[in-house]
Nucleic acid binder design. Structure first.
Length: 734
DNA sequence: GAGCGGCCTTTTTTT
DNA sequence: AAGGCCGCTC
């Protein structure tokens, strides 16, 4: 009886194709799932089906996703289906699954289980040190960021540096090789892995140790992969290796939603799945349950122009819906005001909540003008992503202390905090210690313990450094005996972080205090929820988590996020903004077909996040550096079926430009107000002002109080800078 | 010489 | 918001 119930429950909410896809459990299978076609539903039902109907043990199932959010959602939905939490299921992001495997096995590769994970900024600071040490001539190309992206490419494609540089002997490449070798050695010395290493080292582990790979092949009887179109070479190889002889691999994906090529995703993985796994079965999910017909048609009329794609067209039983609106805006403020107006209109006319809206853009920095406009109209909003919590300076500083307590070899974190709070130890001193530690073949931390042997550092400074060393030693000792929450509270107290921030008294420093408090709460929460896990697990969790993962759906607020973060979410009304700017936000032309293709996919993904209504906006077609840029919007207009959208262009008048053409460069003028009229009341950021000579500008930032107020105002360039003015010279427009 | 603070410029997208 | 650069101070 119980079995019949669960059978009904498990399969009754599926359509015919979904059902087939769920029931096909053996061998490789590819589930092509268009946006909103029930991808997660199939995955979760399949896992539930395996456990409930096929009596597969949860610990024999591996499901890998791209985000923690997707993983959590799946976890939740599976336990709903099976009426109870499932223990032992391997469900997580590629990176977290790999981290788990590596924690257990990394000693075989010369690491210890307490290794730390370096994020992008840690990577960057390590590369800076290396570039400096190698005394590399200053070169446009050999900037740390350039090197980092090269290294990421090499690792993600699972190539050796030799393969990568084959046949290329440019000036920069020769140095790149030196940097690369030093970088990977240094990572290992620091007992640290970067994001790519999590995948790369797991793969290495499987290649080098047949017994290990056999062990995991035995465990992972069934493998499920989400967002397969965004896997890179390494992930592809991992999946293949883990699948072993059985090859019970179900991958779910949609080539039309591949938007991560820039970080190594290879669309060939999904396009060539049939070649890689000749016995595979293919299921196509084309019924869309999310959007109305009009939105699907818009998305399709764009994506169908792509060259490398499997033909498919989504359909829906829903009504056709309203036409989308394309607003050509005059500038940022016009664009933002249009959106605010529409939100107000929709909330009044259609009784929508603020949480029904999402504003999507390409880059996080674009959120500013929307934030200002929403703030001015007292509309609640949340920015998702952007400056991520764990990437804030004050948070990273505290985390660096914790990392050192866990892993003393981590010289990147150690250098970060050796002068935080300021102890008078600058770059020059750090370099001296670095040299010494390399001569002596000891770690940076060990060198601090022998600081009296470095003669070139004055005695007083040696004493300061030794105090720092003893401080760290003390907390390493405490770590084993005291609860983590007490440890961190004591540490922060000891460092006097709160008191010095309080002394500063600025809004920023108060914010920082709040953030650190939140961090402490978060740590305590984590420890409470996972009593058997330690500090290093917390740090791993922090390194792999993102803001979208913490996104709170219940708050009644407009969501602001990038198109990339919007993946997998859905909203009744979606605004896609900044469309004129193309793949490169600075208005550069899209140079290759590939770039254009990826741009279309982004738009498609953005469009299909909308359930009911879609608004598009673009700023006025403009000139950059004297040259005309190729705009996404003009391409868009040539490709889209005109019946599907309503174009609103109030900036054009009979084909001619009305008003001024906005040209680069703009310049920010700093005004200092000398009177005591306290203009901050009216002069808030986002307010438009008119100046008799400079024309119309917008306030970007206000600083200071009562006397000596400074305001940053953006005007077009009129050739002067930093002008001191009286408040009365500005007329406030709104 | 070293460190520090202020000012200016620049910012793709994410695990 | 944060890194780079410059000038000021100990």
């Amino acid at each position: 009886m119980a079995q019949r119930d669960s059978k009904i429950l498990l399969l009754k909410n599926l359509n015919a194709v979904q059902k087939q896809a769920v029931e096909q459990i053996d061998g490789p299978n590819l589930i092509l799932a268009g946006a909103g076609s029930g991808k997660t539903r199939v995955l979760t039902h399949k896992i539930a089906y395996l456990i409930e109907r096929k009596k597969v043990k949860p610990e024999n199932i591996l499901a890998m996703t791209f985000t923690n959010k997707a993983a959590n959602e799946m976890k939740e939905r599976i336990s709903q289906l099976l009426k109870g939490t499932i223990k032992g299921l391997w469900l997580g992001t590629f990176h977290s699954i790999c981290a788990r495997i590596l924690r257990k096995n990394c000693e075989k590769l010369g690491y210890t289980g307490n290794f730390v994970i370096y994020d992008d900024s840690d990577q960057l600071s390590l590369l800076k040190t290396i570039i400096k040490e190698l005394e590399i001539p200053k070169d446009e190309q050999l900037k740390p960021r350039w090197v980092r992206s090269k290294i990421k490419n090499i690792k993600n494609s699972n190539k050796t540096i030799d393969d990568y540089l084959e046949g290329s002997y440019s000036f920069a490449d020769e140095y790149l090789e030196d940097i690369y070798y030093k970088y990977i050695t240094r990572l290992q010395q620091n007992n640290a892995m970067d994001f790519e290493d999590l995948l790369l080292k797991s793969n290495e582990l499987f290649k080098l140790f047949p017994s290990v790979v056999k062990f995991y092949q035995n465990i992972f009887q069934y493998i499920l992969v989400d967002e397969y179109q965004d896997t890179n070479r390494l992930q592809y190889e991992l999946i293949k290796a883990m699948g072993g002889k059985r090859q019970n691999i179900s991958v779910v994906g949609d080539d039309d939603q591949s938007i991560y090529r820039w970080r190594g995703a290879e669309i060939r993985n999904i396009l060539d799945f049939k070649k890689d796994f000749p016995t595979c079965k293919i299921f196509k999910l084309e019924q869309n349950y999310r959007s109305n017909e009009n939105i699907l048609k818009i998305a399709h009329s764009i994506i169908s122009h792509n060259i490398n794609r499997m033909e498919k067209e989504l359909w829906t039983k829903k009504e056709s819906g309203e036409r989308a609106t394309l607003k050509i805006a005059y500038d940022n403020f016009d664009e933002a005001n249009f959106i605010v107006q529409k939100i107000i209109e929709e909330t009044h006319n259609n009784q929508r909540n603020f949480s029904d809206f999402a504003i999507l853009y390409r880059i996080n920095a674009q959120s500013r003008s929307f934030e200002e406009a929403l703030k001015n109209h007292t509309i609640n909003y949340v920015v998702i992503g952007g400056i991520r919590f764990y990437e804030r300076k004050e948070i990273k500083d505290i985390l660096a202390y914790l990392k050192i307590l866990v892993n003393q070899k981590d010289s990147v974190s150690l250098k970060r905090i050796i002068n935080y709070p300021t102890r008078g130890i600058g770059e020059a001193t750090v370099t001296k210690i670095d040299k010494f530690s390399q001569q002596q073949k000891i770690t940076f931390f060990q060198a601090l313990g022998k600081i009296d042997k470095i003669d070139s550092i004055p005695k007083r400074k040696q004493e300061t450094i030794f105090q720092f060393y003893k401080l760290i030693q003390k907390y390493i000792g405490l770590k084993g005996t005291v609860a983590v929450s007490e440890l961190i509270t004591a540490l922060i107290e000891n460092l006097g972080i709160f008191s010095s921030l309080k002394e500063e008294g600025s809004i920023e420093s108060l914010n920082k205090i709040e953030n650190i408090r939140e961090l402490i709460l978060g740590i305590n929460e984590f420890i409470k929820r996972n009593p058997d896990l330690s500090l290093e697990h917390y740090l791993e969790n922090v390194a792999l988590i993102t803001d979208v993962d913490n996104w709170d759906k219940s708050a009644n607020a407009v969501s602001l996020l990038t198109l990339h973060s919007a993946k997998g979410l859905e909203f009744p009304v979606v605004f896609i903004t900044g469309m004129e700017e193309g793949l490169f936000p600075l208005g550069r032309n899209m140079e290759t077909d590939e770039e254009l293709e990826e741009e279309r996919r982004l738009f498609y993904v953005g469009a299909t996040r909308a359930k009911e209504k879609l608004y598009l906006s673009a700023k006025k077609y403009r000139r950059m550096n004297g040259e005309t840029s190729t705009c996404t919007i003009s391409r868009f207009l040539t490709e889209i079926d005109k019946d599907l959208i309503e174009v609103q262009d109030l900036t054009y008048n009979q084909g001619k430009t009305q008003g001024r053409q906005i040209s680069k460069p703009k310049r920010i003028y700093k005004f200092e107000f000398e009177d005591n009229s306290s203009p901050t009341e009216k002069l808030r950021p986002g307010i438009l002002v008119r100046h008799e000579r400079f024309g119309i500008g917008v306030v970007r930032k206000i600083e200071g109080r009562e006397e000596n107020i400074k305001a940053n105002i953006i005007f077009e360039d009129v050739g002067e800078k930093n002008i001191v003015l009286k408040y009365c010279n500005l007329e406030i427009i709104k």
